[in-house]
Amino acid sequence: MLEVKQLKTQIDTNEGVVKAVDGVSFTVEAGQTVGIVGESGSGKSVLAHSIMQLNPVPPTFYPEGEIIFEGKNLLNLSERELRKIRGNEIAMIFQDPMSSLNPVFKIGDQLVEAVLTHQKMSRQDARARAVELLTDVGIPDPERRMNDYPHQFSGGMRQRVLIAIALACNPKLLIADEPTTALDVTIQAQILELMRDIQKKYGTAIIMITHDLGVVSQMADKVLVMYSGRIVEEGSVEDIFYRPSMPYTWSLLRSLPRLDAEAHERLINIEGQPPNLVSPPKGCNFHPRCPFSTEQCLEVDPELTVRGDGHFAACILSGQEFDSEKKRMEFADKKGVPQ
């Protein structure tokens, strides 16, 4: 349904051209949930905005690649054609529900706008549809709440409203950019549950962007690990969690506290700084932080290679080499020898 091919998204800044997305390819099938994980600044949001063509142009530009959605390359569509897709076939929810609703309009009017932008119907019918949507996302007393303003809703309720807005036209693909990061733990779980219900009910495909590995493990059919604008590993939840095949993914998992820790503590924290995206390191982008890096990593820029059925990783180490390196590292760890 969606096929991203060798996409590059770059941003012109005073410091130089930021290579925020640097040759990313992946596919999303109808009804599938694809999780994208990566540290802060790895380009997840820019990638999500690229699919919707919502990055401001300029300073953003797309020097290479294709985004094929149902046979059409979104990068070649006119603004008008894009508008027909935005909110209608592909919808998006953003990270911060507190600031994503317009503070000066009533919730009902913001929903009605979403409905009427793509569907021809009377205002009255649109309001009825809006009430239905609010009911769908579990907002109590929806009729009355239509007339409330965003500041009268809690964060979790606002995220529900935003999901309702996204669902207004029964999109085929829903892009959720860290939909639960700004919410507290119990609300997070409720929102994820709601998204699963919606997917079951409407068969919507979901791209779930997060830096919370817990969220990915609960939701995703397929996981993409992003590092400095690239996909460095792709596989099923089992592949990523039990058979990580390159050092970055492995470090991510190792940085996970135990499962009994609070979900919001399960954030990624790896030693070192993410690379500068204006002039990324030569060779493998991860080499300055990689515990396994060798001379060769300074020269060779590894491509994604097959590691199993639907499992790909970008590292010069083969599966066997990586396994033995890993064992040595873990052994050293146990003995308390510094890496």
Binding site: L54, R83, I85, R86, G87, F94, L101, N102, E113, I165
Partner: peptide, 16 residues
């Protein structure tokens, strides 16, 4: 113009 709510409006498919 670059606030999140503006992004939401654009993501709905509303004309610029």
């Amino acid at each position: 113009v670059n606030q999140d709510y503006t992004k939401t409006a654009r993501a709905k498919g509303v004309k610029e």
